[in-house]
Each structure stands twice: as C-alpha cells, then as structure tokens.
Design a protein around this nucleic acid. Structure first.
Lengths: 346, 346
DNA sequence: ATGAAAGCGCTAACAG
DNA sequence: CTGTTAGCGCTTTCAT
C-alpha cells in the first residue's frame, strides 16, 4: 500500500544518469546541460518527487525549523502570537513547530527535549506558570541554539526578549480612570511572584502617586481569573462601597467583575468604571464593551521571531542581547465612557 | 560558538568502544553487559546527549509526526481541536506539526507540500474556505500517507472524517426555540455552497416541518459574520417585526445580533429569543448569556487523531473509511430563558 | 558536462 | 558480548 516515496536515485536510474547529476540538475547547477536539466525536472514533476527534508536537514545539520513553547494555544493572546510568528517565519523560509506546555513544568521539559532532538534552529518560549527551574532551557544555549523569550520571560537566562510594557500599560489604565473622575480605584491583581503581577501593580501605584491619590492597600485584591472574581468580587464590592473604578489585571477578570456588577444592579460606568488588560475580542462583546489595554500579541510574535532568525543567521555576531518592549495602547470603550463621548458619535 | 551536538560516535570514541555498542547500550539491548550500559548511559547523560531525530527518522523512514492543516489557529474552535489532537498525539508518542492556511488556497498547497517534504506519517485537515481544487491533498494518498478530514471535509476524497452533526444541532436549536413558544423564527445562514451552511439550514427546516410551522423564506438571511450582522440585521428586524426567535449559524453572528437587538431597545429573550452555534467561551459573557449548540472541538480533535494514528499503525488494514459524527448538545442559557428557569435556581 | 565516493547520525543484519 | 558494514536520501568535493 505505502507507495515508496520517489528519490533522486529513482530518477537517476530511470534516466540512466548518476545521482549527483540529478541532484545538480534539480538545483540548476550551471555545470549541467540544459537538456539534462529539462529531462530531470520533467520526470521529477511527473513522479511527484518531493525532496526529503529529513535527509537534507541531516546533511546540512540545519532544519530551517523554529520551535515554539507556549502555555496554551487556546488563549487568544497566544494564538495571536503564533500567527505573528508563522507569518514572518513563513516569509523567511522557516517552518514552525509548536508545543504546548499546558502550564505544566514537566510537559515543558519534555517539549524542550523534543525540540532538541528535532534539531530546531532556534526556539521561542513563553514559560509555564509552574516553572521555577530553568535548566531545561539552558540545554539550548549549551548546544548553541538561540532562544528568545516572550511575554513570560526567564529573568535568569540571558537571551533576547520581547515583552509588553506592563507597568506602562497599567499606568495608562489607572490614569484613564483618574482622568474620568474616579476617586476610589481598586486593583484586581495577579500574584506578585509573577512579573506581570508586579509590573501591572507598579503601574497602578505610579499613576495614583502621580495624581496624588492616596494608595489604599485595602483596594488591592488578589484576583486574576474569572472563577476568582465570582468568588471574591461581590464581597469585595460590598465591603468597599465607595469604589468607583476598577483596574483588573486582565480582561477575563474584568469581564467577570462586570457581570457581577451588573447583577448587583450597579451601573457601568456611572457607578463603577472598569478597565481590563489584553484586548482580546471578548472586550468587544460585553455590555458595555470593555475599555482595555491593547496587548499586541501578533506584534510580539513577529518581533520575537525576527530577533530569533537574526540570531540564527548571524551566529558569529555576538551582539549583546536585546529586550524589545512593545508599547501598550489604551482602547477606550463604553465601560469607562462616563461622558457618553462614544455613543454621541453614533 | 555553535557547540557540536554530541553523537553516539563521540561517546564511542571517548569510551573506546564501537558505535553500535553505544547504540545498543542506550536502548537496553539484552546483549550488552550491565557494566557497559552503565558507562555509556552515564556519559551520555553527562554530555547531554540527545538522539538526533533526523537521523533516526531517515533511517526508519518514519517520523512519528502528524501534520495538521487548519484555517486559522486564532479561532477558538480550531485551537480546541488542536488541544485535543496534541493531547492524544503526545500520549501515543507523536509530534504535531501545525500549519495555518489562513483560509488561502495557495497557502494550503504550500502547507501540504511542506508536510510532504517533512515526511509526516499522517495528516489532519480542515480545508480553507477558498479551496475548490483538491489535488494537493491527493498527493498524500498517492504516497500512502493517511489523511483524516475534520469539520471542513473534502467530499471528493475518500478518507476517514470527523464532523459535527450540523443538521442535528440546528434541529435542536430550532426545536428549542419552538418549544419556548417562538412563532416566527428567523435563520441567519451561512452560504449554501458550504456544507455547514447546508446542514444547519436543513436542520432548521426539519424542525419547522416537524412542528408544523410554515417555512417562510423571507425569514432566512444570508449572514454569518459579525460584520455581516452589523450591516444587515437592523434592517432585517425592522422589515420583519414579528420575528420572536433567531437561530444564527454561529456564535459570532448571534452575539452581534444580540448587541443590535439590545441597541434597538428590544428585550432578550422576552421580545426575541436567540440561539447560536459553537459554544465558545464568548457565549458566557454576553448579556444575556447565549444559548448555543456545543460544538466539541476538543473531542473532534481527539477522535480525528485517533482515527489517523490507527491508520498509520495499521497500514495494511484496508478497513473501509469511517465518518465519525460528533453529536451536538444544546446548552441553554438566558438568551432563551423566557420562563426564568435559570435565574430561579440561583 | 558528468560520475564516484564520502559522510551527515543512526540502526540492524551479519560476523565473530 | 562486541565490532564491522551497509544503507536511509541527499550534497559535495574530487576525479575524469
């Protein structure tokens, strides 16, 4: 059943010429006569010859393949990143091999090993939440395989990096709430052992400080998931009835909080204005649509893969490592539109 | 810079034994003495030896890799499918190589070729909307590489398939609207040259017929995207003020229509009840939450990859081709909850 | 202008 | 128990 895949050997035999001539003819080597070239190419086409990438890669010890390790493909942010990666990689002649860690350290280690075995030319990584040890990544550097971390970076390993400006984005979000007149701004925060947790909390604090609003630690709630919000938000809003603005560390949390606020019968943004972080498509379909910080997944992907391919193709160049920071944007929507600016335009 | 990757040859040289002994030792061949095994394994570990998958695959002419061609990874449905594929593939010792067609025929052809060159053991495919010619897929069968189509299948090629029961799902959706008392049920439909367009329209019609409701072609609108809804829905609802139920061909359209209905000041579900198709996470966060048909992406992925691996590992078995149909579920939420059953439970 | 041969890293007969 | 050898498909010197 399994039809033997056509090789240059087959072509050579049929045409009664040598393997090397076929090889040369197929890649337009100047030494080969036009006649043979035409013959070879015709036959190759007729037989559906496809060069065996395995043999090729083994020979060159280069695979033109980029490995990617991400936590979960299902998150809109990460699939945007992948789209960015793929588009650029494709244009530059690289394949992409995607592995999901599912936020599991063990799986991440196995992924790394698989990529190593497959001799990828370089790796793009966003680390799992549960990963605390980084030796599996060091293997890449040991073997001279360049890595670029994005979004969830590894501070202990010196490499190129691409990150969002979390602090700046959080500042924008909080500043926006202040400017529309919120006086008591809560922050639903991610765990402070995560870099994004730290950065976004810091931006929140800086905005308060800059606008001389007293920081009140009681207004900071450790809550960064939809489920968490359903657990804690109602109680929190009850305990802090003066809260008139919320900056949530991500859209999911913000959206869940909005649903709770709606249920409580309070008005958004009149009673409580709310800003998220991430700008996934979800932010468009809530009621009201959610003001949020745009986290440019696609751009992060393209930048990361560009840095990586540059390293791959300039091994020698020991340019010092870069950290690219993607600047965030505030996307204003109705969840903070107290003045009815947006609907006035309709 | 690029550290030479360690090979069994290196290990053999250092230990002063032959390459084949090393090879055997590493795979616990019974002929090898415990002593040598330990020596070899220790050294291999110390040197971070990783077997070269390229060489291995070339040798065995088997890559243990499954190729996947999907339209867009960004769609929640497709990333769910991929998760399903990856989980099973991983358990069964296969790698997964994902390619996006971006709904482009040309890109799909290139993807297929890349997978062919990389000698994947099998392929999972959901075809691009713009694909009308299928020769690039026939190459796989010609080379004896098994294929499984899922969701967007290719009717012209005989292979295993995994699909949603579109007709049945649409029937459930429409029946549900009928049962909650809707009398004038509109259908926002996909183009009828697409199989899902046909199937879902057919299910809608069957439900009407079964419940003896007169089919009215004016209540069928060709509209299957968010943008389309924003263009056409308001006008449509104006022209057909008696519509009290809508079955939309997918969640995106349903959600956009809900937003329009809300803007028009009508109540959901009291004035108009609405059902979508797909059950992405979006359906949870609209107001009200959207009743929809669960399209089990993850399950489709696991089923498809199981069928594929079965084919791969039983080449000889010319079992006739199967079409697995994943049965749909109705997920009832507030967008059709006229009786307030759901909130009563709270 | 073409062919012969070595080698990329690994496995698996075949010999001892 | 271990070594020798051939070969997977391809490129690339080195000959001719």
């Amino acid at each position: 059943m399994k039809a033997h895949q056509v090789t240059i050997k087959d072509i050579a035999k049929i045409l009664g010429i040598s393997i090397s001539t076929v090889s040369r003819a197929l890649k337009n080597h100047p030494d080969i006569s036009e006649e043979t070239k035409v013959q070879v190419k015709d036959l190759a086409h007729k037989l559906n010859y496809e060069p065996n990438a395995l043999a090729l890669n083994l020979r060159r010890s280069k695979t033109n393949t980029i490995g990617v390790i991400i936590p979960e493909i299902i998150h809109h942010f990460f699939s945007s990143v992948i789209s960015g990666i793929e588009d650029v990689a494709y244009d530059m002649g690289y394949n992409v091999m995607i592995c999901q860690s599912n936020e599991s350290y063990e799986r991440e280690v196995i992924n790394a090993q698989a990529l190593l075995c497959n001799r990828v030319d370089g790796v793009l990584i966003s680390i799992a939440k549960t990963t605390l040890d980084f030796d599996h990544f060091r293997h890449f550097t040991n073997q001279g395989i360049p890595m670029v971390f994005f979004d969830r970076i590894c501070p202990d390993i010196m490499t190129d990096r691409v990150i969002t400006n979390d602090e700046g984005g959080a500042f924008l979000a909080t500043e926006h709430l202040i400017k529309i007149g919120c006086k008591h701004i809560a922050h639903f925060a991610a765990p402070q052992h995560l870099l994004i947790g730290q950065g976004r909390f810091a931006g929140y604090q800086r905005a308060l400080k800059q606008y001389q609003i007293q920081f009140d630690p009681r207004l900071v709630l450790n809550c960064n998931t939809r489920d968490g919000a359903f657990e804690k938000a109602a109680q929190f809003l009850n305990d802090n009835p003066d809260v008139d603005g919320i900056f949530a560390v991500n859209d999911n949390t913000a959206i869940a909080v909005m649903q709770i606020i709606n249920k409580l019968g309070k008005k958004i943004p009149e009673d409580i204005a709310i800003v998220g972080f991430g700008d996934g498509p979800d932010a468009l379909i809530t009621s009201p649509p959610l003001t949020t910080i745009e986290q440019k997944g696609y751009d992060i992907g393209t930048e990361a893969v560009k840095l990586l391919i540059h390293r791959i193709e300039n091994e020698s160049s020991s340019d010092s490592f870069q950290t690219k920071v993607i600047p965030p944007n505030l996307i204003m929507r109705e969840s903070t539109d107290k003045e009815n600016v947006l609907s006035a335009n309709v």
